[in-house]
């Protein structure tokens, strides 16, 4: 493994799961061997959690690679990528591990994969025979082994590893709750459709220390579509929460980059004015609906105060929505809020919270709104959560990209460092008048 592998110190900067996700994604795109040491050294417990293992395994499958160390608790991951293969993939950490993070890890690879090469027949064969699973098992020789072989019409699940955004310790302590086991692999007939790559992801859709899936659907995906000229669709079939997860969603790439071509560079530097804000709070399961009302009320107080400033001659319309999830639309108990602001130049910024155990709805709503207001005040085109998520696309692109951001977050600095370590991309931070401000980035 180690011959010629790029070494990433997993304890550097943010030192959590983001390093792992970005590094394996870039390894799969560049074809570079990768060794990550001291994985999640800044988390307790350190090492890979279930959701990280699943993410590593998922990307390994997409790039037809060989992985080592993709096991829970592992502090070293080694990946020898092969060639990215478009396909229909399924990943299930078997916990409330965040599906949003799995989608994040897989998306850059799938956007470059091109259309399915055999019209989906290849996937069907995998589902019936489990051949790919067996082959991958033989190739990778993962420590955990493959939990299941595929049967006709069933998802083929593979072995998995770990998880997280900043610190998913809480979700991961519970361990797998699905009796069918955790895994990431290609799937058979369950995801149908045309000749496009897709993901079927199970786990937590609204988990602490990770973006809620609504954020990915309403902010990341629309922004990526707009900036890169690709087409993505997400369908959330069922929300899932800590500790049992069991949420389910599909992501379909209906227009990717032509194989052999690069992602385009982009410029997102004009924020414009806020033209609308949509605030949506939901409750599910045992959490009563008045919790979402509390979230909305406290969020409204923050927004009212902000938009009552003399700076706003005409405040934007703000729409409030309280949603009561049904047993069909959500599994388990949970609540959350997302505030989405859209601007006249097409920027989308959001604040969000998943209700923590014991947390008051009013506190979650206020915090989410304060996040959004803070990001609007900064004047950037993206919120604090999107800035680091776009770094990998800038790094892979052909040409020079520019992104107007608020103060760089630790996650952004980490993503930049990983991108520069794994690829020949070079990042700079500039003030509005073009002066270097690199001390903030480094």
């Amino acid at each position: 493994f180690d011959g010629g592998a790029t070494h990433i110190d997993g304890s550097y900067f943010e030192g959590g799961g983001q390093v792992v996700r970005n590094a394996v994604a870039l390894a799969s795109i560049t074809g570079q061997k990768l060794r990550i040491s001291d994985v999640r050294a800044n988390r307790r417990p350190s090492g890979l959690a279930y959701q990280h293992c699943t993410g590593v395994e998922l990307v390994t499958r997409i790039c037809d690679g060989v992985v080592g160390g993709a096991a829970v608790g592992s502090t070293e991951v080694r990946l020898a990528p092969g060639t990215i293969v478009p396909g229909r993939y399924v990943a299930d950490p078997g916990t409330a591990g965040a599906t949003a993070l799995l989608a994040q890890a897989a998306l850059p690879c799938l956007l470059l994969a091109g259309p399915l090469q055999n019209g989906g027949e290849e996937m069907e064969a995998l589902g019936k025979g489990g051949g790919a699973s067996a082959a991958a098992k033989e190739r990778s020789g993962t420590e955990s082994g493959f939990e299941q072989e595929g049967k006709a019409g069933e998802h083929v699940t593979a072995s998995v590893s770990l998880v997280d955004y900043a610190d998913d310790t809480e979700q991961e302590e519970a361990g797998p709750s699905h009796k069918e086991g955790m895994g990431a692999g290609k799937e058979g007939s369950a995801v149908t459709g045309g000749g496009f790559s897709s993901l079927l992801l199970r786990g937590g859709t609204d988990a602490s220390k990770a973006p809620p899936i609504d954020y990915i659907k309403e902010v990341l995906f629309p922004t990526v579509k707009r900036l890169l000229g690709v087409e993505l669709e997400m369908h959330v079939k069922r929300r899932g929460f800590y500790p049992k997860g069991n949420g389910e969603l599909t992501v379909t790439i209906t227009k990717s980059v032509e194989r052999g071509k690069c992602l385009p560079a982009f410029s997102l530097t004009e924020r414009g004015n806020v033209t609308s804000v949509h605030v949506r709070a939901f409750t599910a399961g045992a959490l009563p609906q008045h919790v979402s009302e509390e979230m909305l009320q406290s969020a409204r107080a923050v927004l009212d105060s902000f938009f009552s400033s003399p700076a706003f001659a005409s405040p934007p319309p703000v729409q409030y929505e309280s949603v009561r999830e049904t047993p069909e639309s959500a599994f388990g108990n949970g609540a959350g809020i997302l505030l989405l602001a859209e601007t006249s130049t097409g920027c989308r910024l959001a604040g969000s919270r998943v209700l923590e155990r014991g947390q008051k709805g009013a506190d979650a709503g206020r915090e989410a709104a304060e996040d959004l207001v803070g990001d609007l005040r900064s004047g950037g085109c993206v919120d604090r959560y999107l800035q680091d998520q776009l770094v990998v696309f800038m790094a892979a692109a052909e040409g020079t990209s520019r992104l107007l951001i608020g103060r760089p977050t630790l996650h952004t600095c980490t993503a930049v460092w990983v991108a520069e370590s794994m690829a020949s991309a070079r990042f700079r931070l500039l003030t509005h008048d073009g002066q270097p401000a690199t001390n903030l980035l480094r």
Binding site: V257, G379, V391, A396, A397, P408, A425, F427, L429
Partner: peptide, 20 residues
């Protein structure tokens, strides 16, 4: 709203032109 220019920066990147 806000005060663009005091708390925002341009993140600029020369991409690596990666493909597969």
């Amino acid at each position: 709203f806000g005060d663009p220019g005091t708390e925002s920066w341009i993140l600029e990147c020369d991409g690596a032109a990666l493909n597969v």
